[in-house]
Amino acid sequence: MATMLNGAAIMDGALLLIAANESCPQPQTSEHLAAVEIMRLQHIIILQNKVDLIQENVAINQHEAIRKFIQGTVADNAPVVPISAQLKYNIDVVCEYIVKKIPIPERNFISPPNMIVIRSFDVNKPGFEVDEIRGGVAGGSILRGVLKVNQYIEVRPGIVVKDESGNIKCTPIYSRIVSLYAEQNELQFAVPGGLIGVGTTMDPTLTRADRLVGQVLGEVGSLPEVFVELEVNFFLLRRLLGVRTKGSEKQGKVSKLAKGEILMLNIGSMSTGAKVIAVRNDLAKLQLTSPVCTSRGEKIALSRRVEKHWRLIGWGTIQAGTTLDVPPSPI
């Protein structure tokens, strides 16, 4: 679920895959549809997969069950396309729907660049000579603005440490872009939309094994503040999603937030733990286990530990919070 929410933070549309040889909805299907609504994805195409494994009347009955399931949700008017991924049946129709039903959103090329990091790598192989070593690579999607080769950039929160008193401190990472890639194409400029690989002069140790996931990359001095506590206006789901039930048994109700409990938050592509330190009506104060670079008004997803799994229980909007003092830029 955390992976799905992180990915949804940079998507313009979604394909909801439903197996034709299973009853609808499966617990995970309900949970993912709720997550799509939380992440404000408006453009959805539903794929009824594995139609080659069932008879026509079963496919028609399941199609009606899917229509009933999505009624009143963000996917209410979404097309339901019967496909067989294995036999490549109707894949051309899916491509046509993607082109015609999911519009290209308006992009902002004027604002300072801001990119959510969803992957980071060390591209150096063991045994490289010192002069062959290349800087770390960050992968993600640009939300606004344009990145250019040789541009100086900042990554927040950057390097996070605790001082002797146990207080969290963060030091942004400053670097320079040495290459930009989309797929296999080398670029001089990168614009919003699609996935971009950004080659930098960063120490590759900092980017190894997705260490920068959840951080924000952009123009020096233009990134949002770094929060360690958040005040959120939240809304809880009525019932738990993603938990299997027996027979006609109903999903368990979502209990209220309790002071002192630990939740998981998804903010952009960042997943972090949070301790509830105060609750009043639909407002909660949350202490984060890791600092997050975000803005007031951003949407967040709330998950709770249920039967050894993190389950989506609601969402919220950031109203205010406690920020960290970030050292001034040396550039």
Rank of each mutant, 00 (worst) to 15 (best):
I66T: 07
R67D: 10
A75H: 15
L5N: 11
E22C: 06
Y97C: 10
M264G: 06
A284I: 03
P224M: 05
G139Y: 05
V51Y: 01
I54V: 14
L47Y: 01
R176Y: 06
S303C: 13
N266E: 02
M1F: 13
Q215L: 03
Q26A: 02
E31C: 08
S248R: 03
K162G: 10
P327Y: 09
S30Y: 02
D131H: 11
L143G: 13
N124Q: 11
H309G: 11
L180D: 02
I300K: 00
Q251S: 14
V58H: 10
K285T: 08
R304M: 12
N167G: 11
Y174K: 11
D52C: 06
V51A: 03
Q71E: 13
K256C: 10
T272W: 03
F69Q: 01
Q48E: 09
Q55I: 03
V198P: 02
I177W: 04
G166R: 02
S120L: 10
I277V: 15
A65V: 07
L17D: 04
E106K: 12
Q151A: 15
W315F: 14
L47I: 14
L312Q: 08
L236T: 08
L237W: 03
T272H: 07
G218T: 02
V51G: 06
D92T: 03
R244F: 06
G158V: 07
T323M: 04
N233H: 13
K50F: 14
A182T: 12
A138N: 08
C24E: 05
E96K: 06
L41W: 10
L15E: 05
